[in-house]
Design a protein around this nucleic acid. Structure first.
Lengths: 241, 241
DNA sequence: CGCCCTATTGAGGGCCCTCAAAGCTAGTGG
DNA sequence: CCACTAGCTTTGAGGGCCCTCAATAGGGCG
């Protein structure tokens, strides 16, 4: 039977088969669906949160506004992710969660999540592990932004998004993915101007690595893209690699 | 009575007073002390780890080597930190842990830690929280490297290190801290060349913000440094701020 | 004393930024 | 059906931040 918690189950089952009692515990977590318009914030930096949100459809990002007025995006999230799971133990948000296109989120009360984790160390450690992978991805973004030139950084970003989307079955057989990002979004993530993002995408296209229409990324030559991005998927810690 | 786990207790007690049974549980965690020479790796990317290490003295960092041959440092750690706590659930390391000066580490078997967390949800959630703060710091580094110019990024880094060191009582009354970093280390962390690091430090000195002798950072004008770095300590999630 | 690592300073160049303007697409309303 | 608007994309030109190359000075240690 279809259940609101299914995207999360699919995600966790990638790592390990869940015992029936754990599945049941999770299914008893209450969930309120909230639909977000493009650009709408789910929760803002400085606010206190009493729920964590599972991405059901669409894409969201986490960002901070800098003193200069620039928006720094720190992560992108796809269905199955829980972008603000950290708010379970860090009450006050240190960043904002925002929809990129239209997105649907499942809000789960902290109260329910804590009850589940208290009863099942297995589930707690699986979710803890998810937050640790989250952190591993942050580490790679640091390496990406700090250590690689624009072309390489963008190739790495595309490799990561395709790999994560493939792990939850969202990449078509033609290696395409509906990446609902504007060039401005990519720039805000990589610390590049929109002008330079545009020129860099063009270069990746000219290299035959990708094709890019607004909202649709297709990988034409995976090996070339991986090499350009110096990409090693080990940090994603998926069984498949 | 002094105990090998004391630095960790001091750290956790900042967040919440620990009940006696939790203290006892922690004190029963076995610990092997390992002394590291400057530049020595504790554990390398790709290896499987069976322990997590508490920093007892000195400084360590986490880094990755990029395809270009550059070293990207992703975090600095001071006494009381557990840089590789994530290895408890992510068996294979996706980065290397390395001593910056001489450092002393307390190695705790994963087996023991898991037993403690299984018995005390309170301790598990406290340590989970620590890994979430770790991730929050990564997010800020992304914002710092991606969105701020060199002068501002360096000021922010200094603000963060001083704030974290102060939280565990390592900053003198003269606002100085033994920051065992070379200019090369700072450059590898911020994605700057050593030449530009040198010029940027000089500028911060000329602005009257800091004094810098190799291995000793002193903050002369906290407000000016904070403003230059666009620094807001909220993301460190310490009670004191 | 000599070696090695780190810090410091100069000069020239490249990556990426800012400013500016035009084309494209989708949605809206007449 | 088409004008109109708004947002995103694309391209050009010039400039600044930061890089690389190079060389000298300083400091700890065998």
């Amino acid at each position: 039977m279809a259940h609101h918690i299914d995207p999360l189950l699919r995600r966790l089952n990638i790592a390990s088969a869940l015992p029936g009692e754990d599945v049941e515990l999770l299914q008893n977590v209450r969930m309120t669906v909230r639909n977000l318009a493009p650009g709408e914030d789910l929760i803002r930096a400085g606010q206190v949160s009493h729920f964590s949100a599972l991405v059901l459809s669409g894409m969201v990002c986490r960002y901070n506004m800098l003193g200069s007025g620039a928006r720094q995006i720190m992560s992108f999230h796809i269905p199955g992710d829980i972008p603000d799971l950290q708010s379970l133990f860090l009450e006050r948000m240190d960043h904002t969660v925002c929809a990129l296109g239209p997105a649907s989120m499942g809000l789960m009360p902290h109260e329910d999540l804590e009850r589940v984790f208290r009863r099942s160390f297995n589930l707690a450690s699986l979710m803890w592990r998810e937050t640790l992978i989250d952190a591993a991805i942050f580490r790679q973004w640091i390496a990406n932004i700090g250590g690689r030139p624009a072309l390489s950084a963008m190739a790495h970003l595309f490799c990561e998004m395709i790999s994560r989307a493939r792990a939850v079955g969202l990449v078509g057989s033609d290696n395409s993915y509906r990446l609902a990002l504007t060039q401005q979004d990519i720039g805000d993530a990589l610390g590049l101007s929109i002008v330079h993002v545009n020129r860099t995408i063009r270069k990746l296209r000219e290299m035959g690595c990708i094709s890019w229409e607004p909202g649709l990324l297709t990988v034409l030559n995976w090996d070339a893209l991986r090499e350009a991005g110096d990409f090693d998927p080990a940090y994603l810690h998926t069984k498949a690699g």
